[in-house]
Design a protein around this nucleic acid. Sequence first.
DNA 1: TATTGTTATACTCTATAACTATA
DNA 2: TATAGTTATAGAGTATAACAATA
Lengths: 159, 159
Amino acid sequence: MVLGKGQPNGTAQGDLGLFELPDRLGGQIGFVLNKVARQLHAMFTESLEPLGIKPQHYAVLVLLDASSPLSQQAIGQRLYIDRTTMVHIVDDLEKRGLAVRAKNTADRRKHAVSITEPARKVVAEAGRMADSVQEQYLAPLSQNERRQLLQLLKRLLRP
Amino acid sequence: MVLGKGQPNGTAQGDLGLFELPDRLGGQIGFVLNKVARQLHAMFTESLEPLGIKPQHYAVLVLLDASSPLSQQAIGQRLYIDRTTMVHIVDDLEKRGLAVRAKNTADRRKHAVSITEPARKVVAEAGRMADSVQEQYLAPLSQNERRQLLQLLKRLLRP
DNA sequence: TATTGTTATACTCTATAACTATA
DNA sequence: TATAGTTATAGAGTATAACAATA
């Protein structure tokens, strides 16, 4: 997708350069936020392909890597993932041998989902992919600006 | 979805509070970006329901309000929307009487898509919705921080 | 009664491929 | 040959509703 740089905004009012956004839209954080999130997500998804996982799997694995076992509900609550979606994700991880389900003996409604040993290397590798993609996508920003951006976003995130 | 505030992170390492993210994930801008974008998008979608349009329709209408007519391709390029997706969006707008397709006589491959007069009021109203949702969602940030956030995001957006 | 996990289903958003018509 | 628009189709990601097992 070669889009060039658009015309500098020397055009008459109401006559936008080919790739310019009206102020009304460019001023909306929502619009820009959405596009940026999609672009980064697409890049990360692509970078994970060789590992046979997707961003959601990565997120769950990071969590399990930090503390296994967890119930599916517990994982979902932390990652803002619905429990029905969690079923599919854990299904995928089990098929790929990256996680295992056991019964929680204390509360037999719950599963005790754990990361497998081979998966530890996969998470590590995926983490490097994540870093590399971010490094690439965030290149326009200084280290300090990246920290600022992250802090601002974190303050917006709702439970 | 009542998630509470999570435990303060006074727990032993490896033992995360119920709603805490491991540093590895919380430190990834991608993860937080994605969730924030989805939350805002969901709120905006809901607020637009009474108007019978969705965020993509709003974006196209804003563009057409600023400069009509435009070809579908031209709209899509500015809004990062695929041309096949544009077909559906313009279909929807025509059904709702918010836009009309005419043939571009200079280049008869192209459509000349224009906003309709009644639609001008809809865009204006939708714009107020957008402002209100943003005001609500961005409440944790000062005016200055909102500007910062927008500027940082805009610098990331790729063509 | 409430919670955990499951299943089936469906919706949103988007993109790919193949086509028509115009240039 | 390339571009604009269309169509059919499919995929990813997510959610809703109904259910079983367990608390």
